[in-house]
């Protein structure tokens, strides 16, 4: 993934002349901050022996208030959100001495993976409501249950369990010092790609906060493509399941028959 490092300085410098050309109309007109991000690729190919890597995202904050920037009032949060799907959390309870899945809750449209990096802990960047509004941070991702939710008091416990399990598996990760300003307007974010990163279209989502208030964001799409024999087998199993099944049986017949032929000769 270090290939990604010599990223988009080109893109950044393309943005600078635009800033220089801004007409100076006086201090009364305030230019709103703009956020730019980029990665060196729109596609990441990984093989089955992929053991995880870091993705570096570069970005710039244009039209920032220099004074506020100097005293660290700007914060950047960059998140890599995996493809979204529903997720079911189940809870086991003891029933006649054995542990049985008794209760479950299904959340709609949650990212399969979520890596977040920020200039400091997300919760010290902005208040909870601001983070919840935009769904920024593992603790603030919207987890909306589908269907009938028996006792609403259980909602919190299932949400906590979901976040804990996802974080434990490495699919959800946070780095509270993963974004660093390399110049007053330029920042670099490193995001952890876990070994078990899901296939599909991921979104790099960057957020800019000024003194705890959201001011700008920017998104980029990033495709993660698994390659190699193992992925070819997975694809075959899902796209041509009948042929795959027939082939599995054929392989078994040949193996069984082959063994009886080989060992007969001995």
């Amino acid at each position: 993934m270090r290939r990604l490092l010599p990223a988009l300085f080109a893109l950044l410098f393309a943005a600078l002349p635009a800033a220089a050309q801004m007409p100076m109309l006086g201090d009364s007109i305030e230019q709103r901050e703009r956020l730019q991000i980029g990665v060196s690729t729109t596609e990441i190919a990984i093989t089955s022996d992929f053991a995880g890597a870091d993705l570096t995202v570069f970005g710039s904050v244009d039209y920032a208030d220099e004074l506020l920037m100097a005293i660290g009032q700007y914060d950047v949060i960059v998140a890599l959100e995996g493809p979204k799907d529903i997720a079911t959390v189940r809870k086991k309870e003891r029933l006649f001495g054995i542990w049985v899945n008794r209760r479950s809750m299904t959340f709609e449209h949650v990212p399969e993976s979520y890596a977040i990096s920020s200039t400091r802990a997300v919760d010290s960047i902005a208040v909870d409501t601001a983070l919840n509004d935009r769904g920024v941070g593992i603790a603030h991702l919207p987890l909306i249950p589908i269907g009938f939710v028996g006792n609403a008091a259980n909602l919190g416990e299932f949400r906590d369990a979901y976040r804990r399990l996802k974080t434990g598996s490495g699919l959800y990760a946070r780095d509270t010092a993963g974004v660093r300003f390399v110049s007053p307007s330029l920042f670099r974010a490193s995001l952890r790609l876990p070994a078990n990163i899901p296939n599909g279209v991921h979104t790099v989502h960057a957020y800019l906060f000024k003194s705890g208030v959201f001011v700008a964001d920017k998104q980029l799409l990033l495709r993660v493509v698994k390659t190699g024999l193992e992925q070819a087998i997975t694809d075959a199993a899902h796209e041509r399941p009948f042929l795959y099944g027939v082939f599995a049986v054929f392989l078994a017949l040949v193996t069984g028959w082959g063994a009886s032929v080989i060992f007969k000769k001995n």
């Binding site: 087998i233 199993a237 009948f242 795959y244 099944g245 027939v246 082939f247 049986v249 392989l251």
Partner: peptide, 20 residues
């Protein structure tokens, strides 16, 4: 095997082959 492969996508041919 064929029906499991088509309904649950759960036949692992690599695992099966090593075992066989």
């Amino acid at each position: 095997t064929v029906v499991q492969a088509t309904t649950n996508y759960s036949v692992d041919i690599v695992l099966a082959f090593i075992l066989m």
